[in-house]
Design a protein around this nucleic acid. Structure first.
Length: 221
DNA sequence: ACCCAGGGTCATA
DNA sequence: TATGACCATGGG
C-alpha cells in the first residue's frame, strides 16, 4: 500500500492563508480589465514571467489587435512579432488564434457564461494550447467559478508543509484543495494570487524563504 | 554563463 | 502512466 496521502484540511489551509494575507495583503487578481484580457493573459503567461506578458499585451493593444475578431483577422506572423516578448511566440500566436476561433464558434464569452462549470471546463480543455492550469485560471479569474488553480508553486509550498507529496496528478491536487476548502471564489482567487506572490519574491530557488518579509514568524516554506 | 519564469503538446516506452 | 524534447524571450 504505502500510497502517500494528501493531508489537506481546512484549518491548516486557512492558517497558511491568513499568514500569507497578513504578510502581503490582498493581491487584487487578475491583472486585467476584461475577461478577454484575463484569458489572453492566461495563455501568454504559460511558463513565462508576467512582466514579459504585459509587454506582449501592450503591443497587441497598441497595434489594435486585441479582440477576438482582430486577432482572427491578423496574419500569424504579425501576431507572433507583437507577442515576441512573451516567449514561445510562434506557438503562442497559434494558441491565441485557436482560442479566438473557439470563442467565435461558441458564440462569445456571454454564451460560455451560461454553461455549468464542469461543461465549461471540458470545453476550455478541448482547445489546443489550453491545459489544466490555463483553463482553471480562466475559470477562476475570468468566469468567477470556484476552481482552485494548481501550479508548480502550490506543489512546492504545500509539499514543504507536508500536506501533499507534490507529484500527484493535477486533478488529484485540485480535488484535494477544493474538497478541503469548499467552493469559495473569493478565497480561491486570493489564495492562488498570494501563493504566486510569496513564491515569486522569496522562494524561487531557496529551500526556505530566508529573505521572506514574514521573517522569523514565517511558517510558509 | 546559467537558471528560471503565473505550461502544454507530442513522441516514445 | 510517465518521462523527455521542444518551444524562446527577458531578468536575476
Amino acid at each position: 500500500m504505502g500510497g502517500k496521502k494528501i493531508k489537506l484540511d481546512r484549518s491548516d489551509l486557512m492558517v497558511a492563508f491568513q499568514s500569507l494575507l497578513e504578510a502581503y495583503g490582498s493581491q487584487g487578481w487578475w491583472p486585467g480589465e476584461t475577461a478577454f484580457e484575463v484569458m489572453i493573459g492566461a495563455i501568454l503567461t504559460q511558463n513565462t514571467a508576467w512582466q514579459n506578458v504585459e509587454k506582449a499585451i501592450n503591443n497587441l493593444k497598441q497595434a489594435g489587435v486585441f479582440s477576438e475578431t482582430a486577432l482572427l483577422a491578423a496574419l500569424d506572423g504579425e501576431v507572433a512579432q507583437l507577442i515576441r516578448p512573451s516567449g514561445y511566440f510562434n506557438i503562442k500566436a497559434d494558441r491565441l488564434k485557436q482560442f479566438c476561433g473557439f470563442l467565435q464558434k461558441q458564440g462569445g464569452e456571454d454564451a460560455l457564461r451560461e454553461l455549468e462549470t464542469i461543461k465549461l471546463r471540458e470545453l476550455l480543455l478541448s482547445v489546443k494550447g489550453v491545459g489544466p492550469e490555463t483553463a482553471d485560471d480562466m475559470l477562476l479569474y475570468a468566469f468567477q467559478r470556484p476552481v482552485f488553480v494548481i501550479d508548480a508553486y502550490t506543489r512546492r509550498i504545500f509539499s514543504r508543509l507536508g500536506m501533499v507529496a507534490g507529484d500527484e496528478p493535477y486533478e488529484v491536487l485540485r480535488a484535494g484543495f477544493e474538497s478541503a476548502l469548499g467552493p469559495d471564489v473569493d478565497l480561491f482567487n486570493e489564495y492562488h494570487a498570494l501563493i504566486v506572490c510569496h513564491a515569486k519574491y522569496f522562494c524561487n530557488t531557496k529551500p526556505k524563504c530566508s529573505g521572506c518579509s514574514l521573517a522569523s514568524q514565517c511558517t510558509i516554506p
